[in-house]
Amino acid sequence: MAEREQPVGPGAGYLALLRGQARSQASYRASFAVDLVSNVGATVFDVVTVLVLFQVTRILGGFDVREAMVMVGLSACSFATADLAVGNIERVRHYVRTGLMDAVLVRPLRPLPQLLLMDLPLRKLSRAAFGLAVLVVALAAADIDWTPGRVVLVLVAPLAGTVFFGSIFVASATLAFWWIDSGEVGNAFTYGGRDFTSYPVTVYGGWFRAIFAYGLGFAFVAYHPALALLGRADPLGLPGWVGWAAPGVAGLAAVGAAAAWRSGIRHYRSTGS
């Protein structure tokens, strides 16, 4: 009597998607190598832009170049890692427009992990590695007084920033379930948020800082963790413990993004094609 075939769990399905993507993207080695190199460019440009500003001023928003580069490093590392892990969720607009979302939903796998693994941009590994390198160099140059608490923070803050940016990617992509051509709106919060967090929030003012830095939480990606690492008092007058609030803010962002995604999936209507 033939043995029954053992059922394959969802973990094996996700792993198969990941392996398929890795094989397909690495099959053309020269092209993949070029992609790895070219993808570093965006992060390099972000770093160079900040350094150019310090060619015309010694202080930016109350911070010198070494202090500002810690913020740049935290921002670059967090954003690049989030972009690698979940940045391709932006393609959900294409799936909704063409009806391919139907095929995603009928599979016995959760739709969000499927979408992330179906086009995982491994070429962005170089960007994530460069972002981490910028952070390491900036921390070394800043001459930080390392304590056990700061060692923990320097490990936790980039992870929290990655979760925060990943949540922004997912939440902004969810707009496609209501408004397919929402790409530019989403980019204002993802790539715009990356640019915002690359500078001390003290360079911004009025309602703009209130909304983006604290209303949406971008100040907790790099600015406040950097203050805690540097041992600097906040020029805006907030207490020192705020620098340790990044994991909590990231957790709230993840909860909000998950709720928005579930609502979007329920709202989706099949094209019937």
Rank of each mutant, 00 (worst) to 15 (best):
G243V: 07
D102M: 02
T190G: 05
A129F: 13
T57D: 08
A30S: 12
G215E: 11
A33F: 11
S31Q: 09
Y95L: 15
I265F: 09
A160C: 08
L36G: 02
V151E: 13
Y199C: 00
V170E: 07
V163I: 15
G264Q: 06
W241P: 00
T190S: 15
V52Y: 13
I168D: 00
S38L: 15
L109W: 01
V249M: 09
L153N: 09
E184L: 15
R58V: 02
S38D: 01
E3N: 06
S27V: 07
T271V: 12
T162K: 07
A246T: 13
Y191I: 11
L84G: 09
D64L: 08
F130E: 06
V72R: 08
A176I: 06
Y199T: 02
Q25H: 01
A16G: 10
G9I: 03
P111I: 02
D83T: 05
V70T: 01
R91P: 00
A219C: 06
L112P: 03
T197K: 01
W244K: 02
H94E: 14
H94K: 11
R58D: 15
G231N: 10
V70Q: 07
I211F: 15
T174C: 15
V170A: 12
A253S: 14
G13V: 08
I168Y: 06
T57Q: 13
L112I: 11
G183N: 12
P235N: 10
R232N: 06
S167Y: 14
L112E: 04
S38C: 04
T57W: 04
A258W: 14
F169P: 01
Q21A: 11
S263H: 13
G205D: 11
H94P: 00
V70C: 07
G193C: 05
A210R: 14
S167M: 10
A138P: 08
G9Q: 11
R209E: 02
M118D: 13
L153I: 14
G248S: 05
G41R: 05
A157S: 14
Y204P: 00
L116Y: 01
S167T: 06
G186C: 11
P121M: 07
D46M: 12
A233N: 10
D83H: 13
G192Y: 10
N187I: 02
T174K: 07
V255D: 02
G215N: 08
A68T: 15
L175P: 01
V44T: 05
A76R: 01
A129Q: 03
F177Q: 06
L229V: 09
T271P: 00
F169E: 12
S172Y: 03
Y95V: 00
L74S: 09
L112V: 15
C77I: 00
A246N: 04
A160R: 10
L51G: 05
Q55W: 12
V242I: 14
R66S: 14
V72K: 10
R97A: 15
L139G: 07
E67P: 01
V65R: 15
G240I: 00
G41C: 04
G251Y: 08
H267E: 09
V154N: 02
R29M: 05
S182V: 02
Y28G: 00
V34L: 14
G264V: 06
F220W: 14
V8C: 05
R266Y: 09
S198F: 02
V52D: 02
Q21R: 13
E3H: 13
A176Y: 03
A228F: 11
R58A: 15
